[in-house]
Design a protein around this nucleic acid. Structure first.
Lengths: 265, 265
DNA sequence: CCGTCACTCCGTACATCGTACGGTGTGCGG
DNA sequence: CCGCACACCGTACGATGTACGGAGTGACGG
């Protein structure tokens, strides 16, 4: 049984990674339990070095460019050397995820009421995802239970603790909010990223497609789509600020939460 | 410049696909413009055959298992033969996406008011994503402008046309709703899929991790996370129906939309 | 009627991936 | 100071997408 085969069975839907090896080892890795080595040559690297190199590479070139060989090269070491620190690429990605979460602030979320605080949380999460877009490509098949992830979860929960929701509702509201932010950022990055990677701006792309498109499309068949689609397209192409769409959706989500809180009182 | 390299540059964040080749060719492919071939041997396959084989494979084994060689094998043909029908794997995926959308109903969404109709839409989208989980692994760098995608967009817009929102708001509300459904399904499938692929149930997994986890975690450091996390975990492990979480978030989103509509009047 | 040529299909080749395996060298504990 | 635990590396394998060139097929132009 060789590498790729085994891994692909586990990644059955494209980008699934997650604690898949020995649980104890994974946890120790995430929490930085010092390795108990005595004899032998001094290690040239540390797990943190590898994590940082991985993050830097993913930040610069995306998750697809993150290969063990590339990371190793960045550190001046052979690919296989990494496996003395990290059991597999999947655990490395877990480490990277937890690592960027761990750099987030840990103090109480500032804000007057829950709505202010949730909005701040949403904007912070948005900034994080825009800084590390590869986070969106990680599908966690199991939660990564590292210190960064848990600290983030705790801080976010504290922002809505004691406002009248029960524990399960708190978790659900947070899931809803974070899910919204991920959707919105995914949407936004798709457009921006496509421009960079295809070398065509939105206008250029549309100019290239439109003739072929008009040749096949019967506008009468999709009346509303054509009307709204062109309005939405114009809005996005025009002076419509990208942050506007984000704030619009955010306001809706928060309104929904407000209705829940009101009902609970 | 070889294949994988070129593609990876384009897929800079993991799973990006989308119209990347000749626009005219892509559109004709999507809309099924008949190829104008005269001479030569009769083609053994059709684009539709290839699309269907791809969908079947992705349904059964996920996007990661979708390789040109596998699809070709399924059709009793060599890998390279596919390239006479489809310019690249990226366009095949576009075709698959548009194809499953095209199988959706096209009539008006049933329901008394906008809220009913949006809820129906959400549940339909949820069913679609659970049936074809690989849809969640496709990151569209550009919209796929095929007949299925446009028909779906049109039908969904018609469900909220004329209820007091302007065109841009209609588009935004739909984006919000679909984004919510994607988040929720992603969440739900992650748990279910992990169980299948790691061969451990949630309880088994947790039982394996908990000892190592408790050894490193200081509960006092993350008071709210520990409290809420265990409550949420118990709820999910207990008799808490999976659809419950979906309906909870959906109700919040619809409440948010309701607030918007009310304000517009 | 036959030769031409567009067209379908295939075999091979390349760069790249994750990682299993076995070997080499290093430096601390006995 | 010897032995062993450990860090590190080279090589190899089965995958991947797809470029390239060759082989066979069948309808049209002459």
């Amino acid at each position: 049984m060789y590498g790729v085969t085994a891994r692909q069975e586990r990644e059955s839907d494209g980008v699934a990674y997650g604690g898949s090896g020995d649980p104890r080892r994974s946890i120790e890795l995430l929490w930085g339990v010092p390795p108990r080595r005595k004899r032998g040559p001094k290690p040239r690297l540390s797990v943190a070095d590898i994590r940082q190199a991985g993050v830097a590479l993913a930040d610069a070139e995306g998750l697809a460019a993150l290969s063990m060989r590339r990371v190793a090269a960045e550190l001046g070491v052979s690919a296989m050397a990494l496996y003395t620190y990290v059991p597999s690429k999947a655990e490395l990605i877990d480490l990277m995820l937890d690592g960027v979460y761990a750099e987030l602030p840990t103090g109480d979320v500032p804000g007057e009421g829950w709505r202010d605080r949730l909005a701040t949380l949403a904007r912070e999460n948005r900034a994080l995802l825009e800084w590390h877009p590869w986070l969106l490509s990680i599908a966690m098949s199991r939660p990564v239970m590292g210190p960064g992830v848990i600290a983030k979860y705790d801080r976010e929960l504290r922002a809505i603790d004691g406002i009248g929701l029960d524990d399960i509702e708190m978790d659900s509201v947070l899931t809803l909010l974070i899910g919204y932010v991920q959707s919105a950022v995914r949407e936004g990055l798709a457009a921006a990223g496509a421009e960079r990677s295809t070398g065509m701006s939105d206008e250029q792309w549309w100019a290239a497609y439109q003739p072929a498109f008009d040749a096949v499309l019967d506008p009468a068949g999709y009346p509303v789509a054509v009307r709204v689609g062109s309005a939405a397209g114009a809005a996005q192409g025009g002076a419509y600020h990208p942050g506007r769409a984000f704030e619009f959706g955010l306001a809706r989500v928060l309104d929904g939460v407000a209705a829940l809180i009101q009902r609970r009182r």
